[in-house]
Amino acid sequence: MEITRRQLLTRCTQLLVLTGTAAAALEKTGQAPGPDDTYHMADHWWGMMIDIEKCIGCGNCVRACSKENNVPEGYFRTWVERYQVTEDWEHPKVDSPDGAIHGFPANTDPNVKSFFVPKLCNHCADSPCVQVCPVGATFVSPDGVVLVDPDYCLGCRYCIQACPYGCRYFHPEKHIADKCTLCYHRITQGLTTACCEACPTGARRLCDLKDPNDPVHEFLRNNMVHVLKPQMATGAKVYYNNLDGSVR
């Protein structure tokens, strides 16, 4: 069969246009349906209130988080630290056996100031971990939660080093950076986080800073509130009531 140059060029163009449309159509129809949208990200700005005076170090939050989020053994999205501070308050003794997943052994020395500090991702508004991600896999969502895109993360570990609070870990099976999601799958459907659900004393409470009726506004107004490492200007949104100066 004879084919002229003009015919060849026309055929090629036809083929290009056809495959292009087919690909575009496939992309449209093959798209997964988004989550049902009764939830509006723009209406929320999530954070957490922690009351040091109420924490009893039972480790319920650590166990709940581990079960809710299938956190691998030996890794923690939240953990509880016990501070034991002498008069040399710049050098406190800090322990957290297994992240306090089984609570704490007794300490009864009355001459030492001791208290528990629950820790988790501070869901910083200006997060250092987000700034260093080379591929846009970790981000602050429009409702103020620092998340990791599990399909996009390369596992380069930059964010793990960048977090000044040590809140990220490298998932041993998925080989990606993993962290507290503030139970994003729960809070977007009206539930509280697993740690807050399981806390028996109300020492930790989820808060929505954009909700004018949220108790967080009263909490911030009436208490001596502090965030961790404020000098780093991370915009941390985990607010601690009665945090001791020795806590790092």
């Binding site: 969502s141 998340l147 729960r186």
Partner: peptide, 16 residues
């Protein structure tokens, strides 16, 4: 970031 990631994260099953 990729907006679909929000859906992926929200799809995690609830335990409590």
């Amino acid at each position: 970031f990729r907006p679909e990631a929000l859906g992926v994260i929200r799809a995690h099953p609830v335990a409590f």
